[in-house]
Amino acid sequence: MAQVEKLAADLPLLPAAMVGAEALARARRWHILVFLAPALLVYTVIMILPLIDTLRLALFRRVDGVPMFVGLDNFNILFFDPRWSGHFWSALGNNLYFFAFHMLLQNPIGVALAALLSVPRLRGQAFYRTVFFLPTMLSFVIVGFSWKVILSPLWGVAPTLLGAIGLKSWFHPWLGQEATALTTLALISVWQYVGIPMMLIYAALLGIPAEVTEAAELDGVTGLAQFWKIKLPLILPTIGICSILTFVGNFNAFDLIYTVQGALAGPNFSTDILGTFLFRTFFGNQLQLGDPNMGAAIATMMFLIILLGVSLYLFGIQRRMRRYQF
């Protein structure tokens, strides 16, 4: 809200060079507001203010039921009290692993699929596109349930399939072992979300004007070489968007692990990421009571980590990327 008012006050100072006549400038000032107001209003009231209300809790602690201002003490506990810091650092480490896994698999697979799909006059494009995007549309309830069944040692889908190709001994209860559980979940998550980078990059590839590829072909640049030298640089900004969406998504991830492994993110906390740690702390679990103050401290840390990542991208990478207008 405050931003809108500030904006209105600022608008008369619009750089005149851009606009030219002052009358035009006056006209401009209102439509900018009209364009921005609905989004800003809903977003600020329903999202930002409630979130600020929550983050502010990080500076308080309830003592005998009364909220007390404690400054940054909750963060002190989160980083240095072994009862909290162990969980925090391990969740952060797991989260980084989870993200790295997505970057190494999800986005390259997405690019590859999009590149294959955009081969001109390929039959069955619509079918493939729909099918590849299908997992992305499923709720965690379904994804978690079906993969649990497939990987279940009891019902035998994965063991049977492996047995069919003579690799039965390769089967392990992957979701139940500390060493493999997080990787398995990351793979399921990649399976689910590959559709997003694929779709965005596919759209970007189709958006490359025919003149560009024709010119390349006249110069004898075709096939894979054309993809690497001509198309990839053109879709780099889109790959950038995918990466940052993946980063933000991974550091907010929660549902899949919660659905498959529960709020304690077992076995032995080996699949605990910041999202599950936060949920458990903020809302509680079984006999553990929710602690909104420590929960808010964790949320603030997640926010800062994501802010850092997004800023690095926006100011470090995106600024240097060339943008092409067609």
Binding site: M47, L49, N252, F303
Partner: peptide, 18 residues
């Protein structure tokens, strides 16, 4: 930047206020 802030925190955290 203000608008992208919302990408960074799950809205679920604001549940009680909402």
């Amino acid at each position: 930047l203000f608008l992208t802030l919302g990408v960074m925190v799950p809205i679920r955290l604001g549940t009680v206020a909402i």
